[in-house]
Design a protein around this nucleic acid. Structure first.
Lengths: 227, 227
DNA sequence: CCCCTAATGGGACTCCCGTTCCGTTAGGAT
DNA sequence: ATCCTAACGGAACGGGAGTCCCATTAGGGG
């Protein structure tokens, strides 16, 4: 991954329970060093965190084990992130920066189906699916992580919204249709399956989700004002 | 660590209120005692678990604290349930037995909206919402708990399916519409909001979920066979 | 190239979760 | 009513997660 600038851990900044004059906490006046080593450590830990989350889930996330995987000192992990939820929040801001290219076929039905299938494939994939599950679990246990997750999904939805906007411009959908709401409507049943009912996440399910969202959108269910 | 048969009634216990705990010692084929004290302990612990989950979420669930709340010995809690996930699984089987009465208005749109509003109100309620969140989090970290959650939702969906079936019989919906799928389609966007995007769970959102599910159903998006 | 210090890392220490041992209580069968 | 034993509870133990202290390393400004 790219060595992006500064700490994204602003929202998940390590709490400083120690004495209030203690140096070496982020926020103290002086030069911040986002430099090579720090970035390298962050990248190594985040990648190790992904692996650990996939293997043992969020509940089984162990910062000590993590440090060993990343070949980094335990102290460093505890100091920089402080908690498992803060670490996952940082991982999420990192994930939010990697954007997936979306297809633009010019047909609403096709675009929605492509989106549904992409989401489906992601959630059904053993590695990606486990990661998303873990990340969502973490977000539901900590406000900061929840905010990071919210940001992640906003990014994803923004990428796909244009295909709805264009359909509105073509007159396929009611003029005051909320594009975000339509895109989210595609994902919702797939996430619902993964998180609660545990039913098979197969391709027909994805196509049904896309078709349902399209039908509902055409019927005006996602208009901003009620008729 | 070797896991002894401590595995309590959790993973597969279809327990009635006041149900026997599972016999524990491998070599004691003696009588099981579903009796008063055991049932009382279970009820007290499950109620305390609800409170604790609401207050601190699943991640903050502490069996020792739980025992104190329930005025029960720590050892008892560890012996009977063994883990926090197993305890939540037992709580879920208990919750599955309390059924909510549903309204039957004879109109598909109204029934779906009533369902959506009920779900919405439940998830938006500080107590119930926190409880559901915690329970879902627990289920996503343990297969046994996931099975219990699946069972819980099957019950709930079965209760509401008839209003779809009747709409099919009245000819309002395509004949091969899957009733379960329609009911789940109502819940999905609401759960999606709560678990991932954290957008407001207000009444318009509920009504939109109901309207979208209805429109999609009418359009044949939930038919068992593809056209 | 050199220095200053932010950042890392090792190791010891503490505290608490989960387990084990064993005595006590109470359900229910006779 | 009495006995048997399933189930509960107190207390001590062990281990691992998280913290603290201080020496070491390396970024980057001069």
């Amino acid at each position: 991954m790219a060595a992006e600038p500064v700490e994204a851990a602003a929202s998940a900044a390590p709490a400083a329970p120690g004495t209030p004059g203690t140096p070496e906490r982020p926020g103290t006046p002086g030069t911040v060093r986002p430099g090579g080593r720090t970035a390298r450590v962050r990248a190594a830990v985040l990648r190790a965190a992904e692996d650990a989350l996939v293997e043992h889930g969020f509940g089984g996330l162990d910062l000590a084990d993590l440090a060993q995987r990343a070949e980094v000192g335990r102290t460093t992990v505890y100091r920089r992130w402080g908690s498992t939820t803060a670490l996952v929040a940082d991982l999420l801001t990192d994930m939010a920066e990697q954007s997936l290219p979306r297809s633009r076929s010019g047909s609403l039905a096709e675009d929605l189906r492509a989106n549904a299938r992409l989401v489906r494939r992601t959630l059904a994939d053993p590695r990606q699916g486990a990661l998303f599950r873990a990340v969502i679990v973490a977000a539901n246990g900590d406000p900061g992580t929840a905010e990071a997750l919210r940001h992640f999904y906003r990014r994803r939805v923004e990428e796909w919204a244009p295909c709805v906007t264009e359909a509105v411009e073509r007159g396929e959908l009611p003029p005051d249709t909320d594009p975000f709401e339509v895109i989210r409507a595609v994902s919702a049943p797939l996430y619902y399956r993964m998180l609660t009912t545990a039913e098979p996440l197969d391709e027909p399910a994805a196509d049904r989700a896309a078709a349902a969202a399209e039908a509902a959108a055409r019927a005006g269910a996602y208009r901003r004002q009620e008729p």
